[in-house]
Amino acid sequence: MPSPRDEQIRDPRPLTELRPERLATLRVIATDVDGTLTRAGKLGSDLLEALAQLSAAGFRVIPISGRPAGEVMGLCRYLPGVSFGVAENGLLEIEPDHAPRWLGEVPDVERLRVVGEHMNQAHGAGLRLTGDAFCRLGDVAYERDGRDETELLRLRELAEAEGVHLIWSNVHVHLAAQRPDKGAGLLRLLNQRGIDPLSVVTVGDAPNDGGLFEADRFGLTVGTADVVAQRRWFSALPEFTTAEREVDGFLALSGWLCGRG
């Protein structure tokens, strides 16, 4: 489906054009999880090795996911080099052995569920709550179930008519009271922890990562190769993209960072 934005969109540059001096001040990697750290939906041993190498090189890794608080807590506890993260598309700060902390306004989850049910009953949306809904605190998410962008745009229009926002990742469809913005949530977390946003490289693959790519927020923004085919659905695009998809793109970036270009 063509978009009016198409002619105004400039494709991100290949990662191979990144100048080494851009890497010198980077100390933190804030990364999406599904489709960015995974391959065919799974975390692999090559990722764990890369995270260990990044940690040894002095990098801190912050997972920033659309997944629920409960799942991100597990990532923060067990992944090498990870001690805290952000869940539910920027809503919650997650740290093991601490209660989740809100980074955005506390939503009316019941109203979001009502909107989802109305979309199902009145418009045949076919929205199916995610299996991890039981460990979500402020986000209402549904399985993407293979929907293409044409159908997702239809659902977005229906949601907007109800006064709520709809965004999607490569696995889920999210309803939210405010426009989901991982980048805004990340900025609040960085401010609270005294971390310079210009020391952060953000990484993602899907439209719900658009907030991580907003200009002048972070030191460097990188998308996997998956961004290019979906570029017209992003609120903002990264400066650079890898030649590789999924976790292979993240691995390519981590090689650049560990080798400093």
Results as ranks from 00 to 15, higher is better:
Met73Arg: 14
Gly74His: 08
Leu75Asn: 10
Arg77Pro: 05
Tyr78Gly: 13
Leu79Val: 13
Pro80Ala: 10
Gly81Lys: 03
Ser83Asp: 15
Ser83Ile: 14
Phe84Leu: 15
Phe84Lys: 13
Phe84Pro: 09
Ala87Gln: 02
Asn89Gln: 12
Gly90Asp: 11
Leu91Val: 01
Leu91Pro: 11
Leu92Tyr: 15
Leu92Ala: 14
Glu93Val: 08
Glu95Met: 14
Pro96Ser: 09
Pro96Gln: 10
Asp97Gly: 09
Asp97Lys: 11
His98Arg: 15
His98Leu: 15
Trp102Cys: 05
Gly104Leu: 07
Gly104Val: 07
Gly104Arg: 13
Glu105Thr: 13
Glu105Arg: 15
Val106Gln: 15
Pro107Arg: 07
Asp108Gly: 09
Val109Ala: 08
Glu110Ile: 09
Glu110Pro: 04
Leu112Tyr: 06
Leu112Cys: 04
Val114Ala: 14
Val115Gln: 11
Val115Cys: 04
Glu117Trp: 00
His118Gln: 15
Met119Lys: 10
Met119Glu: 12
Met119Phe: 03
Gln121Asn: 13
Ala122Asp: 15
Gly124Tyr: 14
Ala125Tyr: 10
Ala125Gly: 11
Gly126Gln: 10
Arg128Asn: 13
Arg128Gly: 02
Thr130Lys: 11
Thr130Gln: 14
Thr130Tyr: 00
Gly131Cys: 07
Gly131Tyr: 01
Asp132Cys: 07
Asp132Lys: 13
Asp132Arg: 08
Ala133Asp: 13
Ala133Ser: 14
Phe134Glu: 15
Phe134Asn: 15
Cys135Phe: 00
Gly138Val: 03
Asp139Met: 11
Val140His: 07
Ala141Asn: 03
Arg144Asp: 00
Asp145Val: 01
Gly146Phe: 02
Arg147Glu: 06
Arg147Ile: 02
Asp148His: 07
Asp148Ile: 02
Glu149His: 09
Leu153Trp: 05
Arg154Glu: 04
Arg154Cys: 00
Arg154Ile: 01
Arg154Ala: 00
Leu158His: 02
Leu158Ile: 02
Glu160Met: 04
Glu160Pro: 00
Glu160Ala: 08
Ala161Thr: 05
Glu162Gly: 00
Gly163His: 04
Gly163Ala: 02
His165Val: 00
Leu166Cys: 02
Leu166Gly: 06
Ile167Glu: 13
Ser169Lys: 10
Ser169Leu: 05
His172Trp: 02
His172Asn: 11
Val173Pro: 04
Leu175Gln: 06
Ala176Phe: 10
Gln178Val: 09
Arg179Phe: 04
Pro180Leu: 05
Asp181Cys: 05
Lys182Thr: 06
Lys182Leu: 08
Gly183Tyr: 01
Gly185Lys: 07
Gly185Ser: 05
Gly185Glu: 08
Gln192Thr: 12
Gln192Asn: 13
Gly194Phe: 08
Gly194Cys: 09
Ile195Gly: 10
Asp196Ile: 05
Asp196Ala: 09
Asp196His: 09
Pro197Asn: 07
Leu198Ala: 15
Ser199Cys: 13
Val201Phe: 04
Val203Asp: 12
Val203Ile: 14
Gly204Leu: 06
Gly204Ile: 06
Asp205Ser: 12
Asp205Phe: 04
Asp205Pro: 12
Asp205Tyr: 02
Ala206Ile: 04
Pro207Phe: 05
Asn208Ala: 06
Asp209Gly: 12
Asp209Ile: 11
Gly210Glu: 11
Gly211Ile: 13
